[in-house]
Computed example of a mutant assay.
Amino acid sequence: MWPDPWAVVDECDRVQWDYSPLERVGPLRFGMSVHEATAAMEAYGFTSDTASDIGTFGPFRHLRTRSRAADTPFHRNAVTAYYVGPMGLTCIAVDALSGPQVTFDGIRLVGRPPSELSAELTAYLERTGRDIEITTEGDIGSQQLGMNPRAQRAGDVLLTRLVFGRPNDWACTMHDCVPADEWHVH
């Protein structure tokens, strides 16, 4: 029997991470090399695939690694990390179905109905005097916080998949930090 492709990890079974804007997501720090990020994921019980080349844009080579909990099937990627040449880790995507729960200032970010996260994130942004931005997919996001919530399908429902990035010399905006591969995940 095939495993349910839409199975969602229960909240109590998710690894718990926190987010420091533009600095780190759990054990992953922006700027890490592939080797450093893979070692950090292994320390948290995740196994990572070999870095795959996703193309060269301008002078920079772009790489991707996918990590999953060690005891889960190979197709259940929990975290996708993207690297750009000498800048290292520039973008981190946390899967809505099987990724860690990432919390920022008391807000649970992953695996929630998009409307709930949008309401909570909007209230936070208003309360802290930050800009409220609408992402290219119509969700509430924040350049200042380096986060781009996306809707990911889980059977007949949508849940939040979080994409974190740090703009740099190569990508001036949060949207530019996100590789084209990531926009194809639904």
Rank of each mutant, 00 (worst) to 15 (best):
W2T: 14
P5W: 04
A7N: 07
D10A: 10
E11P: 07
D13F: 07
V15D: 06
V15Y: 05
V15M: 06
W17E: 05
W17L: 04
D18H: 01
D18C: 00
D18A: 05
R24F: 02
P27S: 02
L28S: 05
L28V: 06
R29D: 01
R29C: 04
R29G: 00
F30S: 01
A37M: 04
M41C: 02
E42H: 13
A43Y: 03
A43M: 02
G45T: 02
T47I: 12
S48G: 05
A51S: 08
A51D: 09
S52N: 09
D53G: 04
I54P: 04
T56K: 14
F57M: 14
H62G: 08
T65R: 12
T65A: 08
R66H: 06
R66F: 05
S67P: 01
A69V: 15
A70G: 08
D71W: 10
F74G: 15
F74Q: 15
F74Y: 15
R76W: 11
A78K: 07
A78T: 07
V79Q: 07
V79I: 11
T80G: 08
A81D: 10
Y82G: 08
Y83P: 07
Y83E: 08
Y83K: 08
M87Q: 13
L89R: 10
L89A: 09
L89G: 05
T90Q: 08
T90W: 06
C91M: 06
I92Q: 05
I92S: 05
A96M: 00
L97F: 03
S98V: 14
S98H: 15
S98I: 12
P100Q: 00
V102P: 03
V102L: 02
V102G: 01
T103R: 06
F104W: 11
D105M: 15
I107Q: 11
I107L: 15
L109A: 10
V110S: 02
V110W: 03
P113T: 00
P113W: 00
P113H: 02
P114D: 00
E116H: 00
E116W: 04
S118L: 06
L121T: 03
L121W: 03
L121M: 05
A123D: 11
L125A: 02
E126K: 09
E126F: 08
R130Y: 05
I134R: 13
I134P: 09
I134M: 12
T136W: 14
D139Q: 13
D139E: 13
G141E: 03
G146V: 10
M147F: 15
N148H: 15
P149D: 07
R150T: 05
A151L: 07
Q152T: 12
A154D: 01
G155K: 06
D156I: 13
D156G: 14
V157K: 12
V157C: 09
L158V: 01
L158P: 01
T160M: 07
R161G: 01
V163R: 04
F164M: 02
R166A: 12
R166S: 11
R166N: 10
D169E: 12
D169V: 10
W170C: 01
C172R: 14
T173H: 09
H175D: 13
H175S: 14
H175V: 15
C177D: 02
V178C: 00
A180R: 07
D181L: 13
E182S: 14
E182N: 12
W183D: 13
H186P: 09
H186A: 13
